[in-house]
Nucleic acid binder design. Structure first.
Length: 280
DNA sequence: ACTTTGACCTGTGCGC
DNA sequence: TGCGCACAGGTCAAAG
């Protein structure tokens, strides 16, 4: 699920269960995800309280009463189940539920009465604990601006793209350029901005690092597609109302007056969807 | 320093 | 129905 809008929605779902609540019980069903869990993971969480649950890019950050920060990343397939602890105990389990629970890797039983379970079939997720006084998490420290913040604008985007020869789409996937964009919203934003995913990233900036017109459109498009994804309801048809180009190979381009057909290409080993006619 | 490639995992859907 | 393959919303290390 997880690009910025999805992670933010998950944060909002978890907030009532976690914020202000204490970890009564922490269960690890394995020793690692993409990386090993940090030393003494269970002991460093148990009996501590979540002061706040925030998000940075695609990372969820739980600030603890101990001063440490629980860092969580969902990878490709990670998600959280939130359910009342009581119901959980007497729930009958069918075969399908058992299959799903095979990938329950971390179980937080909270004093809020809710149990929060991290499930991740592919195990590309990460959980880490940052000591109170330690260095910030390396990938967090180098991360670009939050795209929905005031600080993120055409100028900021252009300066991070200036001089870079990589394709613009590939630049958008680089979390140091801008935080939280993934494969879907990279394609979506480029289409809305009518910019080719193939053009060098440097072409949205002047030599001095200022934004050219394409850079202006792209910064606005990034905000627009992310904000829109964030405000959609769960009940809204995912693909239909949500995507302009993603997973729409062979379909007609939705740009007004454009007769193009959406194409799928591969960049950096990942699919890119774009309209070869109106995205220049 | 930059850029590219492949590795890390399991599940699903498709064509034969 | 089963099998093999391509593909999946993300990083990260290693090599050029």
């Amino acid at each position: 699920m997880p690009e910025l809008p999805e992670v933010e929605r998950i944060r909002r779902t978890l907030e009532p269960a976690l914020t202000g609540a204490r970890f009564d019980r922490v269960v690890l069903n394995r020793q690692d995800l993409r990386r090993p869990f940090p030393a003494d993971f269970v002991r460093r969480l148990r009996r501590h309280t979540v002061r706040a649950l925030t998000r940075r890019g695609k990372y969820l950050l739980a600030e603890l009463s101990s001063g440490e920060t629980l860092v969580m990343h969902l990878g490709m397939s990670g998600w959280f189940r939130v359910e009342p602890t009581r119901q959980l105990r007497r729930q009958p389990r069918d075969r399908e539920a058992d299959l799903e629970r095979r990938h329950d890797h971390v179980i937080f039983t909270m004093s809020s009465g809710m149990t929060v379970t991290f499930n991740d079939p592919r195990r590309f997720g990460v959980m880490d604990l940052l000591p109170a006084a330690g260095r910030p998490h390396p990938s967090l420290a180098r991360m670009g601006l939050e795209p929905l913040s005031r600080a993120f604008d055409a100028r900021a985007l252009a300066s991070r793209c200036a001089g870079r020869r990589i394709a613009l789409k590939v630049a958008l996937l680089d979390q140091r350029v801008v935080a939280g964009i993934g494969n879907i919203y990279a394609s979506e934003a480029l289409h809305l901005a009518r910019l080719s995913p193939l053009r060098p990233a440097s072409t949205i900036a002047t030599a001095a690092g200022a934004a050219r017109p394409g850079g202006q459109r792209l910064a606005a498009a990034i905000k627009s597609v992310l904000r829109r994804a964030l405000t959609l309801k769960d009940s809204d048809d995912y693909r239909h109302t949500r995507f302009r180009v993603y997973d729409r190979e062979g379909e007609r381009c939705v740009t007004a007056g454009c007769r193009g057909v959406i194409a799928r290409i591969e960049q950096a080993g990942r699919s890119t969807f774009h309209c070869p006619v109106c995205q220049l």
